[in-house]
Design a protein around this nucleic acid. Structure first.
Lengths: 387, 387
DNA sequence: CCCGCTTCTGACAACGTTGTCCAGGCTCTA
DNA sequence: TAGAGCCTGGACAACGTTGTCAGAAGCGGG
């Protein structure tokens, strides 16, 4: 009992009743799944259905049979290849329409060797920083006729690798990765096989690949220098885990600015690993209630900034604030929030464009590209120290 | 030379589904990249490779040859099937490692009929409302071992269809669609073929399918009633294009609330089609400077709300505001922004869960699910009318 | 030493598409 | 009208994987 007999003349889909969703019900051996049939030696994972396929979809063969033409002729019509009479083409189109045929791209990929899809692995799609980035990657992909598959690593190196390998198994033509881990040697076979790869926001570890970054170090340094220029000397830094490259770079920028101004940094002014709001809140409150309290805070990313704003809003004494990453409505708060803005869309666009340039062969040598940041003054960073 | 067509005016690469240039034209130079570093382990394929292939990836056959076992044994090891001696398994694993083999899921899909991937078509990934939604869909997909492919329709029905069909061509197991258009009969063949389908945020048109919605009507009605309860009678409504279901429903809610309070609505209080900030701004300014100016505004979605906040901030007389959709930092503004919040993550989660229940056969009858909204009072909606 | 049994292994045929190549039928010229 | 050329259409073999099924190897009992 094979799925179908192609020689049965009329295609089996020609007379499927409309509106029924019958294929859904029968395509899983529900009896086996519920399991009250105790058959011990039957392996559970055995799909006993002849076809584990979901529904039966018409193939080019079916279309050909219905249109009364050869298989390859259908292929030609579907792909807009020349060499088909208008009349023949019409008949084929009609059959396609009638059967609801859709080309199976898996088979196509298998034959042609490319998928016209690229993968994007980022940290969290829900983060307002990654939304625009993802969107801009998608736009570039679309302009090149490719689809975007994406996944969130949730800052977990194992999950990153798992995702990347899943994408590679699907034979994406290229990968845009925002690394969670710091060892990417597992990608060596893919690079050898010609999978275009660009890392964004953070550099790759252990392999030589394209990287597109923001100037985290310079941005943070400028932001902190800005606070110093407004008279602050006791400046706190609240950032993410230092194993994250961006986080480490921004801390480095903070230290550099302080050193440039010959201000010794107290350990209690620095808080790292602030991953959730509660920890950020505690960190902020601690450095504000220190015996030697900070008069300004530099927030290491958008999530930290938002939480710090909340803390400061509830704080009696005004405290200056500069945040890394722009946030929506920052201009409407009292005071407006001064930020070091990076251009997420530009990061994504640059990366994706490099990816496709790798793919069309016009790029060969991996490069490291650093995009500038921009200090946007809105008030909170210009508050004078209130000792 | 494979010069087969004299009419070679059209690029032979013009066969990518979504238009645009094929990315991989000159992929052969990839060999230059590894170039001098000859890869000793990778067996070279025959020279008669299809011109479109790029990079040689090892196949199970290669692994089998290297490990000195049969093809099927490799398959067994790769898929963790029982019946392989530890010793054999070790040899195979070693070969896999050495060659950097990755199973080709396209071939697997072709054989098995399912892709373990689902498609998500939404309006704009960069919109803060869709980020969390997308993320929650991804989480559910991940829990079911599926990958997420997504695309942005940019509110364009043609693009929606193009994306959906591209996903179907890739044989996604299921589709989560946030409709841009209002006619989805093109999906009939897919439904018949058993592609699980759930519409979110807006209903499908012309077909019978699962839908998960927010209670747009009720939410808007409650929000407007809230303004009325605080003494307002001249209330403006600024919304998106009325052809969008959510937009129309919210307008309906507005009208219902006004009618419940027996307040006749002036045409000049209603502005639709406000898609970009500039138009929202003009619309808001007009209804504020009317001879009979509104004392409160109901904003039809998050983008409108943000712009209206800006306009009101620059406005002398205090004006009450309730917005549909919650926005970040809304609580920190002066006054805090009162909103009708919908739970984007819950929408996505509910939809994705239904999708997988369709797939495992436990759901057959399409349903319409409506999730409640929540009025969050923060100040702006409780301002008294200032005539 | 053979038989039956279990356990492990491999040959082979799909899956649906596209590239190659050849067979007819047609038009156009001599 | 025949032969040369051009169209158009179709048969067939890949692509890399998995399900089927039969064969091989190991092993104990008669």
């Amino acid at each position: 009992m094979r799925g179908r007999t192609p020689s049965s003349g009329a295609s089996p889909w020609a007379d499927i009743p409309m509106g029924g969703r019958a294929p859904l019900a029968g395509r899983v051996p529900v009896d086996d799944r519920t399991g009250h049939r105790t058959v011990p030696d039957t392996p559970r994972r055995a799909d006993r259905l002849p076809a584990t396929r979901y529904g039966n979809r018409p193939t080019m063969k079916d279309v050909a049979a219905r249109a009364g033409v050869g298989l390859k002729t259908v292929s030609r019509v579907v792909n807009g290849e020349p060499g088909v009479t208008p009349e023949t083409e019409r008949r084929v189109q009609e059959a396609i329409e009638a059967l609801g045929f859709r080309r199976n791209d898996s088979a196509r990929v298998l034959r042609k060797g490319r998928t016209a899809s690229i993968g994007l692995v980022l940290e969290d799609l829900a983060d307002p920083f990654y939304g625009p980035l993802s969107r801009s990657v998608e736009e570039v992909a679309r302009a090149h006729g490719a689809l975007l598959i994406n996944g969130s690593s949730a800052e977990d190196p194992d999950r990153e690798q798992e995702l990347v390998l899943a994408l590679c198994a699907r034979r994406v033509d290229g990968l845009v990765v925002i690394p969670a881990g710091d060892d990417h040697r597992y990608l060596e076979p893919e690079l050898r096989a010609g999978v275009a790869t660009v890392f964004v926001d953070r550099p790759a570890g252990g392999i030589d690949a394209d990287v597109v970054l923001s100037d985290n170090y310079g941005g943070a340094r400028d932001g902190v220098a800005h606070l110093i220029a407004h008279g602050h000397r006791r400046i706190g830094f609240i950032g993410d885990m230092p194993r994250i490259h961006t986080s480490a770079e921004r801390l480095r920028g903070y230290r550099a600015a302080m050193e440039d101004a010959s201000i010794p940094v107290k350990d209690s002014w620095i808080s790292l690993g602030a991953t959730d709001p509660e920890r950020v809140r505690r960190a902020a409150e601690e450095m504000l209630s220190d015996t030697d309290p900070v008069t300004a805070v530099f927030a290491g990313n958008n999530r930290v900034t938002v939480t710090v704003i909340r803390v400061l809003a509830a704080h009696a004494r005004p405290v200056a604030l500069v945040g890394f990453d722009d946030i929506e409505l920052a201009d409407l708060l009292q005071p407006g929030v001064t930020v070091v803005a990076q251009d997420a869309a530009a990061l994504g666009r640059t990366a994706a464009e490099r990816l496709f340039r790798q793919l069309d062969g016009s790029l060969v040598t991996p490069e490291r590209i650093e995009l500038p940041t921009r200090l946007i003054t809105r008030g909170s960073g210009e508050l004078p120290p209130a000792d």
